[in-house]
C-alpha cells in the first residue's frame, strides 16, 4: 500500500442538541490516508479533538460495511458524498483531492430532527413501517423452494426494493424532504409478493398517510433520491406506490362490517 496522504478542511455543522442553535465550524484534517474511509477520517479528527479536550463530532455509524443504514450525512450538498451507490462508511478518501474544503451537515428534514451535530432522529421511518410495513399472516416454517410459485422477475424486483436500508439519504437529498422513495420501496417489496397481497390496500393507505403526518414533503420527480440512494432503489417504486394508492383508495373495504362483534 502506498502511504499517500491528503490534507482537507472540514466545515462541520455543530449542534449541541435538538433545541440548540447550530452553526458551521472549521476543522483541519491533515495527513489523511487515501485508503481511509470517510468515517475513519472523522475518527482521526475526533481523536485530535478529544486530545485537545474538545467535544468530538457526533455522527451515526454501526456496521461500517454499507449494509446497516446507520451512517449518513451531507458532504458538500450530496447525501453520502459524491460517489454513487455508496454509504458514507464505504466512501474512501481516494475520491477527494488534496486541499479540498468539504462541508458536512446532517440530513436536512423537519421529520428528522438533529440529535447532535451530524446525527439525526430517523424514528419517523420506523413509524411509517409500524403503520403497515409488515404482514400478519402466519407464514410458518421456511417453506420448500418453489412451493410458492413466484415469477423470477417479480422475486428479483421485490428483492431490489427490499434492499433499502432506511438510511434516509432519499429524504436528505430531496429538496422537498420527501420520503416517497423509502415508503414506496417498503410498499413495493410486499406488494410484489403473494404474502403481501392480503393487507395490500390497508397497508398502502396507512403507510402513505403516516408518511404525510410525519411531515415529509411530496415527490416532485427530481430524481435526487434515486441518484443518492446507496442501494440504487428505483424511482419506479414511487410510481408503483402511486398506482397502488389509487387502487387502494378506490377499492379498500371498510375495516368493520355491521354485525361484527
Amino acid at each position: 500500500m502506498s502511504a499517500k496522504t491528503i490534507d482537507l478542511t472540514l466545515k462541520v455543522w455543530r449542534q449541541k442538541g435538538q433545541n440548540s442553535e447550530g452553526s458551521f465550524k472549521e476543522y483541519p484534517a491533515k495527513g489523511v490516508s487515501v485508503h481511509a474511509s470517510f468515517l475513519e477520517m472523522l475518527d482521526q479528527v475526533n481523536e485530535a479533538l478529544i486530545s485537545q479536550g474538545q467535544d468530538p463530532i457526533a455522527f451515526d455509524h454501526d456496521c461500517r460495511e454499507g449494509i446497516c443504514g446507520s451512517c449518513g450525512f451531507m458532504i458538500s450538498g450530496n447525501a453520502h458524498g459524491p460517489i454513487k451507490s455508496t454509504t458514507v462508511c464505504q466512501l474512501h478518501m481516494r475520491n477527494f483531492e488534496n486541499g479540498e474544503v468539504l462541508t458536512l451537515e446532517p440530513w436536512r428534514a423537519t421529520a428528522f430532527p438533529v440529535i447532535k451535530d451530524l446525527m439525526v432522529d430517523r424514528s419517523a421511518f420506523d413509524r411509517i413501517i409500524t403503520a403497515g410495513g409488515y404482514i400478519s399472516v402466519n407464514t410458518g416454517n421456511a417453506p420448500d423452494g418453489n412451493c410458492l410459485p413466484i415469477p423470477k422477475p417479480d422475486a428479483d424486483e421485490a428483492f431490489a426494493s427490499a434492499a433499502c436500508i432506511g438510511c434516509g439519504a432519499c429524504v436528505a437529498s430531496c429538496k422537498n424532504a420527501s420520503a416517497a422513495l423509502f415508503t414506496s420501496a417498503k410498499i413495493s417489496h410486499l406488494a410484489l409478493l403473494p404474502q403481501g397481497q392480503i393487507e395490500k390496500e390497508k397497508r398502502t393507505i396507512k403507510m402513505v398517510e403516516k408518511m404525510d403526518s410525519e411531515g415529509f414533503g411530496a415527490c416532485t420527480s427530481t430524481g435526487a433520491c434515486e441518484a443518492s440512494c446507496p442501494k440504487d432503489i428505483s424511482l419506479t417504486n414511487i410510481a408503483r406506490m402511486n398506482r397502488e394508492f389509487l387502487k387502494a383508495a378506490l377499492c379498500e373495504k371498510p375495516e368493520h362490517h355491521h354485525g361484527e362483534g
Binding site: M74, S76, G77, N78, A79, P82, I83, K84, T103, E105, R108, A109, T110, A111, A172, S173, C174, K175, N176, A177, S178, G215, F216, G217, A218, T220, S221, T222, G223, A224, A227, S228
Partner: peptide
C-alpha cells in the same frame, strides 16, 4: 404542495446535489 414541501425541508443544505448526483434545473424550480 409547495407549502408542505417547504415546511418539510426546513433548513436547506448549503448546496443542491451536484456531480454524479445532480438533478435537472427544470425539476427543481417547477
Amino acid at each position: 404542495l409547495t407549502r408542505q414541501n417547504r415546511s418539510a425541508k426546513g433548513i436547506a443544505p448549503v448546496r443542491a446535489p451536484n456531480g454524479a448526483k445532480s438533478t435537472g434545473l427544470a425539476s427543481r424550480t417547477m
